[in-house]
Design a protein around this nucleic acid. Structure first.
Lengths: 211, 211
DNA sequence: TTTTATTGATTGAACGTTCAATAAAAAAAT
DNA sequence: ATTTTTTTATTGAACGTTCAATCAATAAAA
């Protein structure tokens, strides 16, 4: 069945299959054979396109991270305003896009999160992402609060986002995205009000991205 | 070297060694040989006392969970007051005892957290723990807030605790327990103030438990 | 001498990787 | 248009490694 130019297609297929396999049986039991079966190809092809299993796993994490970054920036680009409150809300909403598409993404994300503690390659990726979230939040909060308060607020908000998301991922029924978004936004309002910032009741932004 | 009555000693040794091994190389590479080496015994002994590797892993998670429960109830028993605010603060503090002892506990906890998504045995344990935290928080908050608000607040506070703890576990330098505690308590104050509850500035409770 | 605890070589299963073989498409030749 | 050649994509059996579990042998205590 060899047509020319299969590389990008196969890579995408295999990355998707990796998430499906991890969703199904977890990272520990996501063997190359199982992944290959999900993609409808043979096991050998993984080494051919990704140099080995590790390469595929890293590529999968990269994909998830870039999708997440894209989800955030897309929502922020769509804003007509420069108001920090609106951008903060967009960052929150974007971060709950992780689970928007499917459960597989959420489970894969958590699996990588755990294994990033001992795999330097993955740890680097995870830290870049963490710092990006913190920096985004901090930069916007800095326009509303003094330096130290902005930092604390950013750390707290980041923790709240991760906590909501994490608890959602572990719930058998999956994450209730809308509820999580509401909770995070409500926390943001509380945070600002506690520091004496007048709260603009943020308009619920549209749920869909361009995808 | 067989003395009589080694069972409880060996079990404890092996559970501790399991955490050490997971801390060192992660759950995926924590082989029975490596765990046994940490405990200074042979690999075969694991099957003898725990029926297999899975049994040891489950026992290790049980140990962590019961330690956590103990840390919370100990702090609550030490309280002279019945004030909900004080009990909530004690629950928060107790939950950050997870990382009190060592980094190994935190990493082991996260590793189990991730794999509990696909191991029914571990999933049950994790859900019991989750529900206990939620129920504790909810019960105390219920004395200060209306039903629905108490529920939302409990979920949010639980998410904040988990989020702070999770981000701490992933930080290379480990969790700054005092900072996390302060953040969580500050959030609790915000939460109560936002619902019109007068905040009693809680005295920082003693750090040590009876161990 | 009996009981209890422990060892460590062995076994069989499972895994990721490799690579010669294959098959289909594309390009070249007829 | 057909046939032949070349290129590209893919397979799957074989290989070497690693792991958890087993169990007969052993050694210390009772």
């Amino acid at each position: 069945m060899p047509k020319v130019g299969m590389e990008p297609i196969r890579r995408q297929q295999l990355i998707k299959a990796t998430m499906a396999a991890i969703d199904e049986v977890g990272l520990a039991d996501a063997t190359v054979m199982r992944i290959a079966r999900h993609a409808g190809v043979s096991a050998g092809i993984i080494s051919h396109y990704f140099g080995g299993k590790d390469g595929l796993l890293e590529a999968t994490m990269r994909q998830i991270l870039s999708d997440l970054g894209e989800a955030v920036t897309a929502r922020r680009r769509a804003l007509a305003t420069k108001a920090p409150e609106a951008h903060l809300a967009a960052i929150i909403d974007g971060n709950f896009d992780r689970s928007q598409v499917t459960g597989p993404v959420a489970k894969t994300w958590l699996a990588f999160w755990a294994s990033s503690m001992h795999q330097p390659q993955l740890q680097r990726l995870q830290q870049v992402n963490d710092r990006r979230l913190y920096a985004n939040l901090c930069h916007q909060l800095r326009r509303l609060l003094p330096r130290e308060e902005a930092r604390d607020a950013a750390r707290a908000l980041a923790a709240m986002i991760d906590g909501l998301w994490l608890r959602g991922a572990l719930t058998p029924d999956g994450l209730d995205t809308d509820y999580a978004r509401r909770q995070a936004r409500e926390y943001l309002d509380q945070l600002l009000r506690a520091h004496g910032v007048a709260t603009t009741p943020t308009t619920p932004s549209p749920v869909s991205t361009e995808s």
